[in-house]
Amino acid sequence: MSDGSGQIDILISRYDPERDDQPHTERFTVPYQHDSSVLDALLYIKDRIDGSLSFRWSCRMAICGSCGKMINGVPRLSCKTFLRDYAPGPLHIEALHHFPVIKDLVVEQAGFLDKLPEARPWLIREQEQALADGPHRQSPRQRARFASTSACINCLLCYAACPQYGMKPDFAGPALLALVERYNADSRDQGRAERMPLINAEDGVWSCTLVGNCSAVCPKGVDPAAAINRNKLESAKDYFLRFLKIGSGGAE
């Protein structure tokens, strides 16, 4: 840990689909201050050294979820990771693991985005309340039940951290299953039965072996591993108790 400023070497994994068959590494040297982030370094390189370096970024304040990269092999938000912690370097930046690389540090996110509707990530009510009837009531305690799962910014670091997703892209994955839990745990929601098929599926909670790495890398404290594994018990209950619920409408 150095607290001052200086220079740091950064190794960046580059890939240009129009020229390359596989990525190669390029070295850049950038200056840094005590508060320079990895994103600052990438912007410095793009602006002053090589404009062809491609990466996603936007808010710079760890809330939009755009700028996840592998930083020395660990998935992190580059806006929230500081060069001082890696001095004197070198620092290795790659595209998020487990996703197909489009170019340089940019990955194809369809593996998450296309599955989103399967989570039914919206409030499901048996009877929708009229606007005129005002808001639903929900106590602070009830709200606390889904406060942490609702904090997910979809940055996909958890997918890059999950070897099971890496081996099996059909796996719904940590963020999606955390989203399922977010709505299921919302006292206003009545859509659990609609979401159970995803939970119960082979590609649902049952592809998880509780590596736990998703929760370790989450920059927002979501704990997807807990969201998934709590639902293993729910799914197991659903598996055996569905026979007892015939006619109760509990199961689909």
Binding site: A144, A225, N229
Partner: peptide
């Protein structure tokens, strides 16, 4: 990993630390 595999516990609005 036990805290992740059992139902979530709360004290009021605060989750019980794992």
């Amino acid at each position: 990993v036990a805290p992740k595999a059992m139902p979530a516990l709360f004290i009021g609005t605060r989750p019980l630390p794992g």
